[in-house]
Design a protein around this nucleic acid. Structure first.
Length: 275
DNA sequence: TTGGCGTCCTGGAGGC
DNA sequence: TGCCTCCAGGACGCCA
């Protein structure tokens, strides 16, 4: 499930392949992929566009074109962007939803098993308002201090786990890194988000940033579908402290990791050292 | 305004 | 072996 570290890895790996390149031909095969649902129209509008930059905001990839327009991509659950040096695509790949042929002869293939991912072609002004309504603070920028985190959680009665998943408050944290951050901060996922002390907020701030940085350093986590653009898996899944480790001993205190539902999502935590 | 839940979607796991 | 059910989860809409 691509979260901030996975999307940042895709961005960093794809950037040198995309920037300066022109979209020579675009094929979109899934009518659900584009917003609005006009794949042929979006494909036609993308053809001829030259990439000026590849950015990320939260879990969104932002392909900026020299024309001023942007392609906003969200991978959701199982979206993949793969870069290949041309040639024939693998036969029989039923999950291939779009292919962009670049002017250097290489291809960018978009695969998505569960078809939740989205592509939106927007103008710069529309992008700003679109993201402003949906995306909160970036947790890895310098200006994201523990004071900013406290502001994001202030007054919230929702469980910490739910609050961390709320993209309008904090951008890019998903189910995996929320659990990993809460373990690092020694905080129980069901604690009311607005009732943390200053010390606990500071610990959570450190935990969020440490978990996300660890994910980026290991090229993300591959549980099922996620791959970097060259097709290789991430390594963060080898470093999970709690996520998916039900019954295994907590590496801090030895207590078996437990699994509960929080915010409608599977949630793993240590019942002894997360309070 | 906030929180909780259902929906979308498909593959894999597990039970029978 | 084959069929069925459940589970996974990001974003969004709806309801209380």
């Amino acid at each position: 499930m691509p979260e901030l570290p996975e999307v940042e890895t895709v961005r960093a790996r794809l950037e040198p392949k995309l920037v300066g390149r022109r979209f020579e031909h675009v094929g979109i095969f899934d009518p659900r992929l584009t917003r609005p649902a006009d794949p042929a129209g979006v494909a036609a509008e993308l053809e001829g566009e030259r990439v000026a930059a590849l950015d990320r905001r939260g879990k969104y990839l932002i392909v900026r074109f020299e024309s001023g327009r942007v392609l906003l991509i969200h991978l959701r659950m199982t979206g993949q962007l793969l870069h290949a040096n041309g040639g024939r695509p693998p036969a029989g790949d039923v999950h291939r939803r779009a292919v962009v042929k670049l002017d250097d002869g290489s291809d960018v293939v978009y695969r998505d098993v569960r078809r939740f991912g989205t592509w939106q072609l927007l103008d710069e002004d529309d992008l700003l308002s679109y993201l402003a309504q949906r995306i909160g603070r970036e947790p890895l920028v310098r200006s994201f201090t523990s004071k900013r985190l406290a502001e994001a959680l202030e007054g919230r009665r929702a469980p910490l786990k739910s609050a961390l998943l709320d993209q309008r408050r904090l951008a890019g944290v998903g189910n995996i890194y929320a659990d990993e951050a809460l373990w690092r901060a020694r905080l129980h996922p069901l604690r009311p988000a607005g009732e943390l002390s200053a010390e606990e907020i500071a610990a959570l701030h450190r935990g969020i940033r440490a978990a996300l940085r660890a994910g980026i350093a290991r090229q993300g986590a591959t549980l099922s579908n996620y791959r970097t653009p060259d097709g290789s898996p991430g390594r963060m899944q080898e470093e999970f402290r709690v996520y998916g480790r039900e019954g295994e001993p907590c590496e801090r205190c030895g207590t078996p990791i437990e699994k509960i539902r929080a915010g409608g999502r599977g949630t793993w935590y240590c019942p002894s050292c997360q309070r």
